Computed example of a mutant assay.
Amino acid sequence: MSADGRPHLDKAKLKKQFDISHFDLNAIIRGIQLTLVGAQRALQNPEIFTSQHYKQAAIAVAAGIVIRMLIAFPIIGIKVLLWFLSFFLSLDRVTWDDKLVNGLTFIEEHVLQAPLFFMSLMRYVTPTLDDLFMSSLRWVDQTYVQKHKNDADPSRLRAMYYPQLQLYRATDGRTHSSSTAESVTLFLYRFARKGALSLAVFALSYVPYVGRLVLPAASFWTFNRAVGLGPASVIFGTGVLLPRRYLVIFLQSYFASRSLMRELLEPYFARIKFTAEEKRKWFRSREGLLFGFGIGFYVLLRVPLLGVLIYGIAEASTAYLITKVSDPPPPPSESQGFAASQTEWRNKQKFLSLSLGNLDALHDKPPPYSELDPHPAAAQQ
């Protein structure tokens, strides 16, 4: 309150609410570009074409077929039931049966995100994805050295990522536990909770009178936390006018791309130990770029049958991404304070200003960090 008793407008707080610097359009576009550049770099890695990876690719395609069958099984069951009922009911004169099948397909594909669930579950069944990430990280280092071998001042080149990161013991990136059972349990719990929430919101959108506002309100709440009050208000206003189907696809695509990025980055966070708050800040400072990268691969993952294979390419591409949004890790014995120093994206503006054909031009050495100064990167900005 001001001295005369009137409400005081906190301009700094209001400015913060409308700040979208962490989710600006330039960062999103650069993230989409990295989808293509990262995939191209990953496919240049000769280790991907070894007999072992051919076998894994064949398994991935087979898994894609199985996943599609698992997703389609309930729909097939409903169709068989409707076919059986057609002997007793005249279904050719009604449309509710077609609406039921189409509705169930929509819920599985877009509301529950079943394809993404099955593909993400593979991480806990086989170490293939972790191996792809580390193999690709080694290839990114080798490519970097090759491209800069003729630099006049080699001392300016960055340190390598793979030699240090492979020294860290891999655990669950969320609990830092090495228990596979615990990791799978938490993974199933997270997806079950998200699925239940998505179904609840989708069901409430059919409530008479107020249902029309449920999805726009959910969109506002979600994007207000991510991009601020201003953009969230625009999304709310647009959502009121959009048909329910397109609003669900838009909202769930955003959620799915976030979930996808967290799964793709798991090999990194499984080794570098971040606290929950440090990880939240890490994601927020890079949110626009990660959204662009995630939504790019999310679209590609929806290619029938080849989705699991593309998921592997996405994991390999994430190795290239991590070299653009984080500093090379130190040896494990010197890692105290490193995670805290990474919460701010130190070279964000420099990286976003590079041309698409010159993304490897930025190779500044990171400033020193210490336990007494846990956020030296922020001080450099």
Rank of each mutant, 00 (worst) to 15 (best):
I313N: 06
S333N: 05
G31V: 10
N224Q: 15
I67M: 02
I310L: 14
Q166M: 08
V214N: 00
D98V: 12
Y298H: 14
M134S: 01
R286T: 07
N45Q: 08
R245F: 10
S341L: 00
P46F: 11
K365M: 05
S135C: 00
R244C: 04
I107R: 13
P7T: 07
S353Y: 02
Y311R: 10
E315K: 01
R244F: 07
S155L: 09
T175M: 02
R262P: 00
P330R: 02
Y268C: 02
P115G: 07
S120M: 09
R225C: 02
G31N: 10
I76V: 14
L213D: 04
M69E: 11
T318Q: 00
L116K: 03
N358V: 06
P46I: 06
H8N: 11
P267T: 02
Y54P: 00
R174T: 08
L165A: 03
A319V: 08
N224Y: 15
K149E: 15
P329N: 01
S341C: 06
S198Q: 12
L85G: 01
Q17C: 07
L36S: 08
I71L: 14
L89I: 06
Q166Y: 04
E47P: 00
S2H: 13
S341V: 03
R284H: 14
P115C: 08
R93S: 12
K279C: 01
F250L: 09
H110W: 15
Q166E: 11
L100P: 14
K147Y: 10
L372K: 14
P216M: 00
F291L: 13
L9R: 15
L82R: 10
L242D: 09
I20F: 13
R41K: 14
L354G: 09
F293I: 05
Y254I: 02
P208D: 00
F187P: 03
W345P: 12
R212N: 03
K15A: 15
H22G: 08
E344K: 13
H53L: 01
A200P: 12
L306N: 07
V101P: 10
R271D: 01
A218L: 10
F293R: 04
R156N: 10
A72N: 13
A270Y: 03
F187I: 00
F338R: 03
K55A: 05
W282T: 08
L25T: 14
T171W: 08
F118R: 05
G195L: 05
L157P: 08
N358C: 01
R346G: 04
I310H: 10
L25P: 10
G292M: 10
V308F: 09
T95M: 08
